[in-house]
Every structure is written in C-alpha cells, then in structure tokens.
Design a protein around this nucleic acid. Sequence first.
DNA 1: GCTTGAACCTCAAGTGGCTTGAGGGCGTAG
DNA 2: CTACGCCCTCAAGCCACTTGAGGTTCAAGC
Lengths: 132, 132
Amino acid sequence: MRIGVLAKAAGVSVPTIRYYESIGLLTPPARLGGQRIYGVEALNALSLIRHCRALDFSIDETRDILASVERRLPCSDTKSFAEKHLGAIRQKIAELRALEARVASLVSGCETTCCGSTAPDCVILQPGCGAA
Amino acid sequence: MRIGVLAKAAGVSVPTIRYYESIGLLTPPARLGGQRIYGVEALNALSLIRHCRALDFSIDETRDILASVERRLPCSDTKSFAEKHLGAIRQKIAELRALEARVASLVSGCETTCCGSTAPDCVILQPGCGAA
DNA sequence: GCTTGAACCTCAAGTGGCTTGAGGGCGTAG
DNA sequence: CTACGCCCTCAAGCCACTTGAGGTTCAAGC
C-alpha cells in the first residue's frame, strides 16, 4: 500500500510517517518509482507506535517497546515500561494538583482581599504569595 | 546593576534574561561599554515574570499580565487571567487522570490476564485495549 | 497520446521556552 | 601587563511533530 493508505489505516498523518522513518522508528520500505510501498507489517508497527503515543509514551520509550516486541521479550518487560510510565504520570498529576491549589488560593485571596484594586497590587501577582 | 547581579537577585539564569529581552518581554536596558546595566524596575519586572512562570503561565500570558500591570488595569483582569489558567490546569489534570486510569487498568490487566507471555501478545500493547 | 488532478517526493523552517556551546570583548586586581 | 571572571553575539539543540515551498509520479478521462 502507498503512504496515504497506510496513514488512513493507522490513523496518523502522512508527514508523521515520514518523520517516524527519518528518526529510525519505522524501517524504510521498498520504493516503486520513488514512492514508498508498505506491507502489512508496517501497518502493525505503525499501529503499535500510535497506541504507545496515545498512551503518552515518549518516542524513545516507544522505540524501546518496539524493540521488546521485535525480540519477543517477556511480557514483564512491557509491564515494567508501563509501570514506570504510570509513576511519571502520577507524579505529573501531583505537581499539577499542587499548582492548582496554589492558583486557586490566589484567586480566592484576590476575591476576599484585594477588592477592586489594580493589577500591580493584586495578591495574585505578589512575589511571595503562593510560592511553592 | 549588571546582568549577573540581576539574575541572582531574581533567581533566573543570565541567558534567560537575554532570551526574555530578545522576545520583547523585558525592555532593553541602557548599556555601558556594551554591557547591560539594569535599574530596580527591571528587577521588579523580572521578578513578576518569574512569578508568572512559576505559576506556569505561558510567555504570552505573562506578556499580557505584564501589560495589565503597566497599564494599572483593575485587579479583576488579573483574576480573570488566573481563573482561565486555573481552568486549563484542571483540564490537564482531568486528561492525565483519564490517562492514569487507562494505563493502570492495562497494567492490572497484564497481571491477571497475560501471565508470562511475550511482549507482542501482552494486553498492554493490544491496539483496541485501553482506547480512549 | 495528452492533460488534469491527486497523491507523492525532498528539504527547510516553525512551534515553546529555554539551554548549551563557540568564539570573542571588557573590567579589575595583583 | 597579565590573569581571571564576567560580559557579548550568534547558532544550534531539545521534543514531536506540522506547515510550506517547489517539484515528480500515477491513474483516469478524452
């Protein structure tokens, strides 16, 4: 199949496929008249890549996962990738929740404290206020 | 003061200050012998920028906030920036929580279902599994 | 056989918010 | 006068693509 067909089948854009090839994530396919011709294994690989990216694995992590699939490594490897990733996600959530609390308290502080003053005096913008 | 002193006082790096100047976030200061000489107002501005960035406002949002401070706009403007930002933070948290649930269920699915199989067959990597 | 239009090709630059590095100039203390 | 630290500019790198320019190939209709 040609690149446009592959793109639709896998649900990614055509330039993205070429980008994945350029960084060595997809192996370069055969060419006919200069145009890329893909087989089913390319669709499988690309679908897996898309799955990993949808789970927010980085390109490098995705590369490692692809390698573990190609080498038929045990499932426990896959699980440890996912667990590590899960830890990163949870850490980011924790950071964002702390930030949320900080901004929320600044907003409510503004509502109660600086009623009707000007931006330079707003509690939201005071350097010390809401520091980590 | 010179750029290194300003950097330490405000808690940012020297290249960051030059970067902020290059994108028009900080106004270019006077020069002595080619070197930047800053006054106290630059420290105030840079501290405010740092505060906004620590609250994870984007550069563009920070630029708008700086403008509202310079124009002494009412505090309500500042609050609406913060509220909009808070909404964005909460949305990102919601997305990450959905992702967390997805990955967590894949991991536990791997533990219960695919005991000891290989990566290509692991439930974590099956395209349909855990889709949004 | 010729034309048209869609799909394909490569290469370069842009996104955000800096950081890092190369290669040099200025200022001051010994 | 030399050594050292601080300063300067400009360019490239990070991540994961997207967008655009300018040109080639393919399939279909006449």
